[in-house]
Amino acid sequence: MSLKGTVTTAPRRVSPSRRGQGVAGWTLVLPSILVLLVVVAVPIGYGFYLSLTSYNPVETTGPKFHGLTGYLQVLTSGEFWDALRVTVLYAFGTLALTVPAALGLALLVNGKFPGVALFRGAMYLPRVVSLVAVSMIWLWLYSREGYFNHLLDLVGLGPVEFLTDEATALPSLIVMRAWKALGGSMIIFLAGLQTIPKELIQSAAVDGAGRFRTFRHVTLPLLMPITTYVVVVDLIYLAQSFSEIYILTSGGPLGSTTVVNMLVYKEAFENFKLGEASSMAFVLFCMIFALAYANVRFLSRGKK
């Protein structure tokens, strides 16, 4: 009996199958791990080192170590906090437009009616087209002779310098970005709506709840987890905005659209302050990481 036990367990530990899996596993994983080591792990370490130095590559001396001085400079400079404020405004402004609109659209196209697939596909289109291409279209829409000024003209207003006026530049970017994000968020809400059991909606109707009350007390609470997911994922994504801002306003006018990524780019590749720019990048990294971590915690708590 005991002999039989050893016969079945002992060879399994060194069985050719297990050893084969070990070798195969490492062989298959190695290319990905090596690349990620070079393009992610090493840059994080190197970047952190740079963030503790002052480094101007135009001067031929290498990075000069100065500890946390770079972080202190960043955290005490008005520039960084301004950029952070713009980033937060941009991200939350976009979400404030996208989330209710996407939920409304999802409710509108949830169900069977003629042309539903076509409409869903069309709404998703802005998501498929690149941010740079979208920026080109909106560059004209917002221009002096563009469509929006024409619309304002029709009601006797304007013209407005949408992208070059400090008061309108950031809101203009927000509207564009919300339009771009609409379809993607709509699809996620749609998926969420379709997981809600029909019986639940029906039983609410049987209990005498009207359409609005059913939505308010049944649908909306059940959509909360997916809404949190949409908000946090978009927030992480929006906090890293760059290309549309670079193209439409390049951070101006008067820094009113300079988000943190824009500031990092300018510090590093226009002012050649690589150390300070690295410190900024790491502060942003910590904030985004905290957000992502909170999201994971929240979602796993929701599952229990």
């Binding site: 596993g25 760059f242 985004i288």
Partner: peptide, 27 residues
């Protein structure tokens, strides 16, 4: 596949997905 390091390497890969591009940019 069962191999030593499967779990930690997978978690590290997921972690790499969370790194914002701007952190990699300069280094």
């Amino acid at each position: 596949l069962r191999f030593t390091g499967n779990r930690p390497l997978f978690v590290a890969t997921l972690g790499a997905a969370m790194v914002p591009a701007v952190v990699q940019l300069i280094p």
